[in-house]
Design a protein around this nucleic acid. Structure first.
Length: 294
DNA sequence: GCCCAGGAGAAGG
DNA sequence: CCTTCTCATGGG
């Protein structure tokens, strides 16, 4: 897959099973905003970019980015090397619920996000709603992070490093309105400073199985089963992860008849039925239950 | 004004 | 092991 370089943008052709609305609005990321023309602007790995996808020509355009950024960051970030058509076929054949969910969120891709960002983002996400999670994260970046650059007159900020966050006082964090989660962040940042960011990086390796990654993640303050599964899925390529939040509980109850309080039952059902693609199935279900009109 | 949100930690059984 | 309570904030 090759990105062609034009005067003011890049173009990548032959991209299928792809829809920016599905990718950026399925609850896996919090730092992308939709523009009036349907494009999205955001920041990841310290790079600001605007993406626009045209379904007719199966072409993705990237503005404000260099070809080297596509090769080193965006190709992997968007998981462009994976054939979601194959995975969707496998999942859709499981039952009519999945068939509908896959059709509904046909353009979903599991992003390969930064581990540190995903760790703190999902600590913030607990018992919180998505619009407010976005506000908290942006506020954290603007308050304690560093400026990455500007795009169309707007400034974009990187999230604070573990070192900065570990040294932050509660007064420093007060403007971010994180609530009781603020102390979880500082505690986890402190541990990351002790261990080094490599302690997170190694968990993304292929030789580390999903269960191992979860066990390691559960040791961080503010990281429980649901948050650990999100981090493993959205930043470590552990596609057998199956995050269970209130929405997944709803859809598993309504569509598969599992008791709303039986988390173990849901986990086992997903492992048995969706196996290595449990996390991807979960994202189709999440998008379906949170977007379909009643 | 009220219910709830991509829950986790702590305490108690 | 499992259940219940508490936590801070504001979106809808």
């Amino acid at each position: 897959m090759i990105a062609k370089e034009y005067a003011d943008h890049l173009e990548v052709k032959d991209i299928r099973d792809f829809e920016l609305d599905h990718i950026f609005d399925c609850g896996q990321c919090f730092r992308w905003e939709k523009n009036e023309d349907g494009s999205y602007t955001g920041i990841a790995f310290g790079k600001i970019v605007t993406m626009k996808y045209d379904k007719e020509t199966e072409t993705l355009k990237l503005f404000g980015s260099h070809k080297s950024d596509f090769d080193s960051v965006w190709y992997d970030y968007l998981d462009l090397g994976r054939d979601y058509g194959d995975i969707k076929k496998i999942l859709a054949d499981k039952d009519d619920v999945m068939r509908q969910a896959v059709e509904y969120g046909q353009g979903i891709r599991i992003l390969n996000q930064e581990k540190w960002e995903t760790l703190i983002s999902f600590i913030i996400s607990q018992n919180n709603n998505i619009p407010r999670i976005k506000k908290c994260i942006n506020s954290l970046a603007e308050t304690l992070g560093t400026k990455a650059g500007e795009y169309k007159g707007r400034a974009y900020y990187k999230l604070p490093t573990p070192e900065v966050l570990a040294e932050a006082s509660q007064a420093d964090l007060a403007p971010c309105r994180l609530g009781y989660r603020a102390k979880y962040l500082v505690a986890t940042a402190g541990r990351i400073v002790e261990e080094g960011l490599e302690s997170l990086e190694v968990l993304g390796g292929e030789e580390i199985c999903g269960r191992e990654a979860l066990d390691a993640l559960l040791c961080y303050c503010g990281v429980g089963p649901k948050v650990a599964n999100c981090i493993a899925l959205f930043s470590m390529k552990k596609f057998d992860s199956f995050p269970i939040d209130v929405w997944v509980r709803k859809v598993m109850n309504q569509c598969y008849g599992i008791d709303e309080n039986d988390m173990n039952g849901m986990k086992e059902y997903a492992a048995e039925k969706f196996g290595e693609y449990g996390g991807i199935a979960q994202q189709y279900l999440f998008y379906y239950i949170t977007h379909k009109k009643k």
